Simulated assay, not measured.
Amino acid sequence: MATRFGFWFGAVAVVVVVEGIGGLPASAQDGFPFGLEMTLDAPPQPGSKRVPSLEIGDSGEAKLELWCKGGKGQFSVAGNTVIFAAGPLEDRSCPPEKAQADDDLVAALSAATTWERQGDAVSFAGPTTLRFHLNTN
């Protein structure tokens, strides 16, 4: 009798988990953009055509090309929770205003705690929300 109860309890737990997955928001169903490149939804800095981009590998490794600096980092994702850990950035003799903008962008990305995807738009939210567009070409 105890084994039947255990079996039915397990079966009910599986149904609850499956129902919970079916009820996830659409953003989570679209999936985190592993293996994709995206561009920040921001205008270029004065005197430049460059806009920051992220290339996220299949295991969460990230390549950052900012307004002036570049570097690497790592994304860890669980559901809609995200953690970004930045690696060292390559300075590239940036003017002070671009260097500060790059540092601020990396700080905002590192402070993000959640992510959301709606079609080709990916947002990272924390004290500041950063919006990126997937490069679909």
Rank of each mutant, 00 (worst) to 15 (best):
P96C: 10
P95W: 10
P95Y: 05
P95T: 07
E90R: 09
P96G: 05
W67P: 04
G70T: 12
K98A: 09
A85M: 13
A86G: 09
D91A: 12
V82H: 04
E97D: 12
K63V: 02
D102E: 15
F84Q: 14
L64P: 00
G71T: 09
T81H: 15
Q100T: 05
K72G: 11
K63Q: 03
D102Y: 03
L64T: 01
G79Y: 13
G71I: 06
N80L: 13
I83E: 14
D103T: 05
A101K: 09
A99G: 06
D102I: 02
D103H: 04
F84Y: 08
G87H: 10
W67A: 05
L89R: 09
E90M: 08
A62D: 00
K69A: 05
W67K: 09
Q100F: 08
K63A: 03
P96W: 08
A101M: 06
G87I: 04
G79V: 03
V82I: 11
L66G: 00
D91W: 10
F75G: 00
T81G: 11
A62N: 00
G71R: 08
N80E: 15
R92P: 02
A85T: 11
I83V: 13
G79L: 08
V82D: 07
P88G: 05
A85Q: 12
E61L: 01
K72Y: 08
E61V: 01
S93D: 10
L105Y: 01
G87M: 10
C94W: 11
V77I: 05
N80F: 13
K63L: 02
C68G: 07
A78T: 02
P88K: 15
K98Y: 11
K63G: 02
I83M: 13
E97C: 11
C94M: 13
F75K: 00
A99K: 11
G70S: 15
E90G: 01
F75T: 00
V82T: 02
P88S: 10
D91K: 14
I83N: 14
T81K: 15
